[in-house]
């Protein structure tokens, strides 16, 4: 029999995606283009300011040069060390609060959907509020200073650490847990010897990663009065001492780069 006779009359066209997939893709592209066009048409941009920008930029850099290195010992060093303490203490505090919430959010540790959902809601709300907003709230509550900054960093980080810890817990292997349960281990041993060894590498990498982010974030908290190097930045800017601003920015840059190198090295060698 002729094999062509069994084929349909029309040549078959091959398509990679189903019509529903194509429609979904098209609508995404369409919405993206529409959003860009709509935003570009309505956003308030004053063109005169844009023409002026290179000149203003030049002026800014001229005022920033030479960098006021003498200012480091006088006003920057203490604030910089404070910033590092805010970032580290904030991270520690966040981990202390995030571990229980992470345990509650993981379905295999806490087999209760309502509790899981509630814990996840806590984590999402922590992440949805920017650390600057947390800082504003805590400045209103505790007054200006490092305490507000530390708490802001901590509360912003809970969501991040808790979410990633909960996901790591949910991915852990059930075998060792069952073995411990069968041996009659109490729940503290199940956590410490069953779950902890499995999530330990991801736990440390999440904590280090968050510490790195927190060093960056704690540098700006001072703009709303929450302590650290941001206060020095704010003061220098309000006084239009741009050479001092440059000094502060330079020191932030150095600390951020060093923090990133430290974290990368630790991740590479230990984890």
């Amino acid at each position: 029999m002729n094999p062509a006779a069994s084929l349909p009359a029309e040549p078959r066209t091959w398509r990679r995606f189903t019509p529903a997939q194509r429609a979904a893709r098209f609508s995404v592209y369409f919405v993206i283009v529409a959003a860009i066009v709509a935003s570009a048409r309505t956003v308030e941009v004053i063109p005169e300011f844009l023409y002026d920008a290179p000149e203003q930029m030049q002026d800014l850099f001229r005022r920033m040069w030479p960098i006021a290195f003498y200012h480091y010992a006088g006003g920057v060093h203490e604030a910089l060390v404070d910033t590092l303490h805010i970032a580290s203490l904030g991270t520690i505090l966040a981990v202390v609060m995030a571990v229980p919430i992470g345990l509650l959010a993981a379905n295999n540790v806490t087999p209760n959907k309502v509790v899981n959902y509630f814990a996840k809601l806590l984590l999402v709300s922590s992440r949805s509020v920017n650390s600057l907003v947390w800082a504003l709230l805590f400045v209103a509550v505790f007054g200006p200073g490092a305490l507000a900054g530390t708490l802001a960093i901590a509360f912003r980080s809970i969501g991040f650490v808790g979410k990633l810890l909960g996901e790591a817990l949910e991915e852990s292997n059930a075998g060792p847990i069952e073995a411990l349960k069968a041996a009659g281990a109490p729940w503290s041993s199940i956590l410490a010897k069953g779950y902890w060894p499995q999530v330990e590498p991801s736990f440390w990498s999440v904590v280090l990663f968050r510490w790195d982010i927190n060093v960056r974030e704690s540098a700006v908290l001072g703009l709303v009065g929450a302590g650290g190097i941001g206060m020095a930045l704010d003061t220098a800017m309000n006084l239009f001492q741009w050479d001092r601003v440059a000094m502060v920015l330079f020191s932030i840059f150095c600390v951020v780069v060093v923090a990133e190198i430290v974290v990368t090295q630790i991740r590479k060698r230990v984890i």
Binding site: F49, M57, V220, L233, F253
Partner: peptide
């Protein structure tokens, strides 16, 4: 890329506010 990453967006925004004035353009 490293230079763009090292500063928090709010700090970059401060510099752009000085360069292009207050408003959405600095934020963008």
């Amino acid at each position: 890329i490293a230079l763009c990453r090292s500063f928090h967006p709010v700090i970059v925004a401060i510099l752009f506010v000085k360069a292009v004035g207050f408003g959405a353009l600095a934020g963008i």
